[in-house]
């Protein structure tokens, strides 16, 4: 464990908690893409099945349980508890265009053709594009609540910190995972446009307006 990975995990945890609290406190999921949240729940489910097969550390297990629990709680709040506030008209990204190619790629490009490894690879590829429905929805509505932009900022920051973690681990431990690195780069690049707006416009405005 190094400071970049720890900060990255805490940033990821912060994003997940911020979103869950936002929906719970405001009793509304307006502006939130339920599709992205379903994809994240799928990412955690397919990646953390090893909870049942191997124990890494208390930290590892605890974080995985928290991530999975929060992901499903968020999906529940969006599609069940506060369904009336779900903005389905703007959450129209065709997620099958993400899941199917990612599923196929996981079968073609992986480190090992075993079920757990394929599922892990699927989760890595899916995570890199899972935010697209959310970014697409914001571009359609043309704005995002401030709290949502903080959620996206920490979510994007976490994988950027993981990239530094992988540089650190390559240099000090000789650790190298091409699949995780390439997907992580793609994932972080998708946030660049948002990062620019967050930094340049975040301060001044109450709402982040993305030019549609």
């Amino acid at each position: 464990m190094n400071i970049f990975r720890l900060t990255g995990d805490l940033s990821h945890l912060a994003a997940i908690i911020i979103l869950l609290l936002k929906i719970w406190k405001t009793r509304s999921c307006a502006g939130i893409s339920g599709k992205s949240q379903i994809l994240f729940a799928l990412v955690f489910t397919s990646r953390y099945l090893d909870l049942l097969t191997s124990f890494i550390s208390l930290y590892n297990t605890t974080m995985k349980v928290i991530y999975i629990g929060c992901a499903y709680a968020t999906v529940y709040l969006i599609y069940a508890k506060f369904k009336a506030t779900y903005d389905g008209n703007h959450d129209t990204f065709r997620v099958e265009f993400l899941v199917v190619p990612v599923g196929g790629l996981a079968f073609l490009v992986n480190h090992d053709f075993s079920p757990l490894e394929i599922l892990w690879t699927f989760s890595i590829y899916l995570e890199s594009v899972a935010i697209l429905p959310q970014l697409f929805m914001i571009s359609k509505t043309g704005e995002a609540e401030t709290i949502t932009t903080h959620y996206l900022f920490f979510l994007g920051l976490y994988r950027a910190l993981y990239l530094i973690n992988w540089i650190w681990r390559f240099y000090f431990e000789g650790f190298f995972d091409m699949i995780a690195i390439v997907a992580g780069v793609v994932q972080t690049i998708l946030y660049c446009d948002f990062f620019y707006l967050y930094v340049t416009k975040g301060e001044g405005r109450s709402q982040l307006s993305i030019p549609t």
Binding site: S57, F176, D177, A180
Partner: peptide, 10 residues
């Protein structure tokens, strides 16, 4: 091109 390792990352 991948170091065999336990998946210890989240």
């Amino acid at each position: 091109h991948r170091t065999p390792q336990v998946k210890d990352e989240l």
